[in-house]
């Protein structure tokens, strides 16, 4: 099976998860980034690709650094231990 890209965009409006060609958006709930929905989606990804361990994170420049750590924490908890942080913003 070809390795599919897994990318987590941490945007001002919330999270966006890109798995191969599929995009999933998790907007903020009550002003907070929604980690519950993201965690559930990552569980599905983990079931579909049990061998996958790498992921990339992009963060908008205005987003607090704390949210970048939050995104990394959720990915680590989901079993994606090899995380790269992109220094450019996602479109």
């Amino acid at each position: 099976m070809a390795d599919i890209p897994l990318r987590l965009d941490i945007k001002d409006f919330g999270f966006r998860l890109i798995v191969g060609q599929d995009k999933f958006t998790f907007e903020k709930k009550n002003g907070e980034w929604d980690i519950t929905e993201l965690t559930e989606r990552l569980k599905v990804v983990r079931q579909m690709y049990p061998e996958k361990s790498d992921a990339t994170i992009t963060v908008d420049n205005e987003v607090p650094y704390e949210k970048m750590i939050l995104g990394m924490d959720v990915l680590l908890a989901g079993g994606f231990g090899s995380i790269s942080v992109s220094t450019v913003e996602a479109e």
């Binding site: 963060v59 420049n61 987003v63 607090p64 650094y65 704390e66 970048m68 942080v85 220094t87």
Partner: peptide
Amino acid sequence: QADKAMDAGTVKKVMYTLT
């Protein structure tokens, strides 16, 4: 060690420089 309220843009510039 970055302050949690720091904007990610600044942290990314530091990361880019470190690389």
